[in-house]
Structure formats: C-alpha cells, structure tokens
C-alpha cells in the first residue's frame, strides 16, 4: 500500500537540518504502523511526505501503485485517497461542523449536497457527536474538534489515514475519546500511519512500531519488541525518558 524507498529531506532555516536521511519503509494494506521518536526526529516530516505536504528530495514514494515522486502524478487525486488528521485540528473556522465534513465531498468528489450530508451525518454519528452538526468549531472542545477532523478526513472514504500527533494538543481527559475513534478504525481494517506517543494505543492496535531519531529509522518491530525488548541504545534511552 505504501512503499517508501530511500527518501531524503533537508530544511534550510537558520541552519541546515537533515530531517530525513535515507528513509525506507513499507506499509501493507490494513496494517497499522505507529511512528515514535523524540521531537525533531523527522517522524512528522516522514508522515507529511506521504501525502506530499512536504516534497522528498531524493528517493521514491509509491502509494497504492501511484508514484508520488513522479512529477506527472496528479497529486490532488492521490491526496483524495489519503486522509490526514493534524495535531492542531485545522478545522475550517468559518464553516459549521457539517459544512467542514461536506465541503471536500461536494467540491472534490462532486457528490450532491444531500448525499454528502447523509455521509457526513453517518460519520459524525460514528465519531459520537451528531448533535454538533450545526455549530461552529470554536464552540467545541479540543477532543470534539479532533473527532470532527477525523470525520472530515473519513468523508473522502480514503484508503489510508495519516495521524500526526493528534492527541498532543488535547487535555488528558479528551485523549481517550479520540483514541477510541482511532481504535474503531483499526478494527475496521483501515491502513493507518500514526505518529504518536500513546503507548497504550500502540500496544493495543499497532501491527508495527517504528522508532526514528535524527532523521533515520533506528529500529522497527512489533509493539512488544520495541517497548519491551528494544535492541538499540537510542531506543532504550528514548523509552526511558517517556515512560
């Protein structure tokens, strides 16, 4: 489903930052992969490369048989098949919750308004807040906003979902409600790449955990292997810090 081969990414801000160095990974259909690592390790950059919000400099990214790194690829078509949820929700503040979930359906998928609304209501039901359809995002709690953001991404009926530290900006008591929605998605067989430090979540549903540091994949394996029997010193040091 996702094939990444030898990608590089360098940022030039105040100084040169090598965000990704020769990163390769593979995700099968229906697989759930959790990426962990210290801040600045390149995990978010890797995730953003997967839907071309960042452009990899070298190497190859193939999503569902389509090569992202080929300049002839219509990136908008690929993105429509990849849902993404952000740390800062990024809901559209000038639209109601319902409009947030229908806008891409009608403008990109070209569904009729009533069809889009029907799908949107089903999804809001699924994430547990159908009663908030008519309100604006600013009137929702962080957890509710993030669930709307998930519903918005799901409305495109994507084949892959990317989650970029989606619980990091939430108050502790709201993390649970968001993780619950994500677990449901896992059980339904969604292909997911998740950047997250939620170990409980990873142990429960992840097929594989990838540990990244300084732009490189240091170690990967089942949750048990990474969390309980890490081989690399850097992995051990990182886990010692977050546990």
């Amino acid at each position: 489903m996702i094939d990444v081969t030898g990608i590089y990414k360098t940022f030039y801000t105040t100084h040169k930052v090598e965000a990704l160095v020769d990163v390769s990974m593979h995700v099968d259909r229906g697989e759930v992969v959790v990426i962990i690592g210290p801040s600045g390790s390149g995990k978010s950059t890797l995730l953003r490369c997967l839907n071309h919000l960042e452009t990899a400099e070298k190497g190859q990214i193939v999503i569902d048989g389509i090569e992202l790194t080929d300049y002839r690829t219509n990136i908008n078509k690929v993105r429509a098949e990849i849902g993404m949820v952000f740390q800062s929700f990024n809901l559209f503040p000038h639209m109601t919750v319902l409009a947030n979930v229908t806008i891409a359906q009608t403008k990109v998928r070209r569904r009729s308004g009533s069809e889009a609304e029907k799908i949107a209501m089903e999804l809001l039901e699924k994430v547990g807040i159908p009663e908030k359809a008519g309100v604006y995002p600013s009137q929702l709690s962080g957890g509710q906003q993030q669930r709307v953001a998930i519903a918005r991404a799901l409305a495109m009926q994507p084949k892959i979902m990317l989650f970029d530290e989606v619980t990091s900006a939430l108050d502790p008591e709201m993390i649970h409600e968001v993780l619950e929605v994500m677990e449901t998605l896992c059980r339904e067989g969604m292909t997911m790449v998740v950047v997250s430090h939620e170990m409980g979540f990873a142990r429960k549903v992840a097929d594989r955990v990838i540990f990244m540091d300084e732009g490189r994949i240091v170690e990967e394996g089942t949750p048990d292997k990474i969390y309980d029997h890490p081989e690399q010193d850097r992995t051990k040091a990182f886990l010692a810090q977050i546990l």
């Binding site: 849902g83 990024n90 559209f92 403008k107 990109v108 953001a149």
Partner: peptide
C-alpha cells in the same frame, strides 16, 4: 491565515484554486 488551513484543504484533495 494559519498555514494549517491550506494544508488541511490540500490534504482533502482540493487543488490550490478550490
């Protein structure tokens, strides 16, 4: 306007004009 707005819109498959 926060950069995340454009990123969210683009990640939903909208092109730049949309």
């Amino acid at each position: 306007i926060h950069r995340g707005q454009m990123e969210a819109a683009r990640s939903l498959g909208m092109n730049y004009p949309l």
